[in-house]
C-alpha cells in the first residue's frame, strides 16, 4: 500500500514519520506509548498537528485503525486531512534528518533511495538549509531521496564506511550497498551550490541510480543475508514484548495481553502479512 500512487498522494497532506523501531530506547518507549505498554516492531497512529492528540486508535497495522482495505485506509486519511488547513510555505519546511549516519545509510538501502549527507558547520549549515528547503519541497525531488545532516559525535567516522568520501565539508550523494552498512559517494556537491543546480545534480544521479539498481526481492535478500552472516547491531536488542511486561519475549512466545489495545483487531497476534509486504 505504501508504494501505491494513491497512498503517496494521500501522504502529501500529512507529515509522515517513520521511526526505526530498534534504534533507541526513546523510539521503543514511543512505540510502547502507542501500544499500551507493549513493544512490537511496527506501530501506526494518526495524530493531530500538535503531534500529541491521537485521531485514531493505534495498532501494528493501518488496516486495524483506518479500514480493512487499502482503499478504505486512503479514504480515511483523505477525510482526516481535509479537517486541517495547511499553513506556511514549503520553503520553510523542517528538513529530514537522522540520529546517525549509520541509520541513514541502512534506511536508504532498505528504501533503495540515494542519501544526501550534509557535512558542514554552524553558519554554513543554516545557509545550506535555505538552499535545501526549496529543493526538497519540489515535487520532482520529494520522496525520492533521504537526507541526513552530520552529527559531530555520532557521525565522526562516517568516511570509514563510504568509498570516495572526504572529511571536507560538503554535500555527498551516497549510494548505499545492498545491506546498508557501506556505501559509495556518487556525487560531491559544494555547500555553496545554488538550489537549481542542486536539483539538477540530484535528479541526474537519481536517473542513473534507477537505471542501474534492481529492486530487491525480500526473500532473496534475507536468504543472502543469512548466507553471508549479515548482522546490523542496533541500539536495542531485536525481539518483541507482546505481553507488555517490559522484557523482550522469548522467541516463539505467544502474544499475551495485547488484544485490548485501542486499535483492537489483531494486536498481539503477529505481524500482519499486509504490513510486512508493503513496507
Amino acid at each position: 500500500m505504501f508504494s501505491t500512487k494513491e497512498f503517496i498522494e494521500a501522504s502529501r497532506n500529512y507529515v509522515c514519520v517513520r521511526l526505526e523501531s530498534y534504534e533507541s530506547e526513546e523510539h521503543q518507549q514511543l512505540v510502547r506509548s502507542f501500544l499500551n505498554g507493549r513493544f512490537e516492531n511496527t506501530a501506526f497512529c494518526i495524530l493531530e498537528p500538535d503531534a500529541e492528540t491521537r485521531l485514531t486508535g493505534s495498532s501494528r497495522s493501518p488496516h486495524h485503525i483506518m479500514g480493512r482495505t487499502n482503499d478504505q485506509v486512503i479514504a480515511e486519511m483523505t477525510r482526516i486531512a481535509k479537517l486541517y488547513r495547511k499553513k506556511g510555505g514549503d520553503r520553510e519546511m523542517a528538513l529530514q534528518d537522522f540520529h546517525s549516519f549509520r541509520q541513514a545509510l541502512n534506511v536508504a538501502s532498505a528504501d533503495q533511495r540515494l542519501l544526501l549527507f550534509v557535512s558542514g558547520n554552524g553558519g554554513d549549515l543554516e545557509k545550506v538549509k535555505s538552499t535545501l528547503r526549496p529543493v526538497f519541497a519540489d515535487s520532482d525531488v520529494m520522496g525520492r531521496f533521504h537526507l541526513d545532516f552530520a552529527d559531530e559525535n555520532s557521525d565522526a567516522d562516517w568516511t570509514g564506511t563510504v568509498s570516495r568520501s572526504s572529511d571536507a565539508p560538503g554535500m555527498y550523494l551516497i549510494q548505499a550497498d545492498r545491506f546498508g552498512q557501506h556505501g559509495a559517494v556518487v556525487a560531491a556537491i559544494p555547500l555553496t551550490v545554488e538550489s537549481a543546480d542542486l536539483k539538477s545534480a540530484l535528479l541526474e544521479a537519481n536517473r542513473e541510480f534507477a537505471e542501474s539498481e534492481a529492486r530487491k526481492v525480500y526473500s532473496d535478500h534475507v536468504s543472502e543475508g543469512r548466507e553471508k552472516n549479515v548482522f546490523f547491531k542496533n541500539g536495542m536488542p531485536y525481539g518483541e514484548d507482546r505481553d507488555g511486561d517490559g522484557k523482550i519475549d522469548p522467541r516463539g512466545a505467544k502474544g499475551g495481553k495485547g488484544r485490548k489495545g485501542r486499535g483492537g483487531g489483531a494486536e498481539g497476534r503477529g505481524r500482519p502479512a499486509e504490513v510486512e509486504k508493503e513496507l
Partner: peptide, 12 residues
C-alpha cells in the same frame, strides 16, 4: 504546517 501526523514505527 498544521498537517496531521502519520506515525509509523518499523524495522529496517
Amino acid at each position: 504546517s498544521n498537517r496531521p501526523v502519520f506515525f509509523m514505527a518499523a524495522a529496517a
